[in-house]
Design a protein around this nucleic acid. Sequence first.
RNA 1: GGUCGCGUGGCCGAGUGGUUAGGCAGAGCUCUGCAAAAGCUUGUACGGCGGUUCGAAUCCGUCCGCGACCUCCA
Length: 506
Amino acid sequence: MNIDLVIHNTLSNKKEKFEPIEDGYVGMYVCGPTVYSDVHLGNCRTFVSFDIIYRYLKYLGYKVRYVRNITDVGHLEGDVDTGAEDKISKKARLEKLEPMEVVQQYTVGFHDIMRILNTEAPSIEPRATGHIIEQIEMVQAIIDNGFAYEKNGSVYFDTIKFAKDKDVYGQLSGRILEDLMVETRELNNQSEKNNPADFAIWIKADESHIMRWNSPWSVGFPGWHLECSAMSTKYLGKTFDIHGGGNDLKFPHHENEIAQNFGACGCQPANYWLHTNMLLMNGKKMSKSIDPETGVSNSITPQELFTGNNPNISKAFSPMVIRFFMLQSHYRSTLDLTDAALVAAEKGYRRLMEANKVLQNFAAIENGAAGDLDKEINLLIDKTHSEMSHDFNTPMAMARLFELVPKVNGLKEGHLSFSDLTTDTLDRLKQVFSDYIYTIFGLKDELDSASSGNSSMDGLMQLVIELRQGARENKDWPTSDKIRDTLAELEIQLKDGKEGTSWSKI
RNA sequence: GGUCGCGUGGCCGAGUGGUUAGGCAGAGCUCUGCAAAAGCUUGUACGGCGGUUCGAAUCCGUCCGCGACCUCCA
């Protein structure tokens, strides 16, 4: 495709033309979840956003190696200096499980949700515990290069020396080292770090710590930031194209990751850094604490969303409606999840999918004249592509599809004429809908109203519809309306159209 | 307190200084036995105050309000 892809790079805070290191190939690393509890809906937004990016890069013809890790060790709760505990270990201790049982349970749960949301699996999904050797080697390399020091079996990254040597620390997050030193000085003065801005890359394990490995420095475990540096380097090389993650990982996680890569390899790990914004709920960051006024917590899990079992929503919403909802905002903007917004998304989703069905069922046409309608449709299609290529602007691309919907319906209803279209344009229109809806946006036809997928149910409904039709032909309105109203109580809606009656579950 | 970002019509949400974002809701119409569903058409906007410009939702200043990060977080 002859379109320049423009990407907003957090590193420069500018939109830049995307140019891969190797023509035709893209290496992309995205920070995955820490599997110590059920996946949070906010995580889902990030992974759906990168799924769209992955899909679009492939659509543009790139061969993409997409690496997304699973963090199963090293992610601490609290501060290292004041007795922090590994999140996985803590969960294992509380539930009397092996740490790897915790990891397995939540990894499976995570994959289930990702599959339900129709995200494609990454090319490689490496785990931190599977790359302890690589992480130890990286620690050693950083020590050898003089950017880390050992204290009592733990190894710390020497942030001050690094900042003096290479002028990159703070570039990504916009942080100034002097400020960081001042801010954190009071918090931990009994630390064994040389400087409060230093961070642990290898941590000596105390007796209570169950996840531990041998290393040249101590029996211990790697620091959280290290796994991404080690695994991205292993699978994508010292410098690769795209590194992504949630906004809240910018600092300290990504900043420290860059420092580690420089420390070990002497170079910037990724040319383009992409950060997704937060998902809010009712205007606020999701939180599990209970609001004293309403008695309701401002949070929701994917499962609750799919079942409607949460006080913040009025009904269940299907996975594709959630995906559609996410597509309607840009990945770098916050997105506010409200019941009304989801209801709106559901209707919009249905309208788009219905129009697509109508479009794909159009029969082949005689080649018509390339008039105004033809031009208008081609212009909208061109815009769809160019806007999507402008920093993956899904809401704009989506808006163009919605502008094409009345054209499709107009052709179907007959007030627009196929004779104003060339066969090429109709084919192109079919192609762009199918490409965007299925291939790029990753939506599925889950609300297909014509059928329940259950043959006895379908047969039964066919019978009921025929009986009602008979009553209607006899102008027996009480019988006809009784059938309609009773079905409505059973949450089945009848839709009387020109070509007969169809039904769907409400 | 420090750093960064945001304030767009009833709601959600795009916007790359200059011609309609889009979705939902509302209104009108078509279809219908009546409805529903579906389709078509359509009104309402850029937090306040200054400034730059021929022209500002978009750039600058300022004030007000909100949020994120700085501690685990996607």
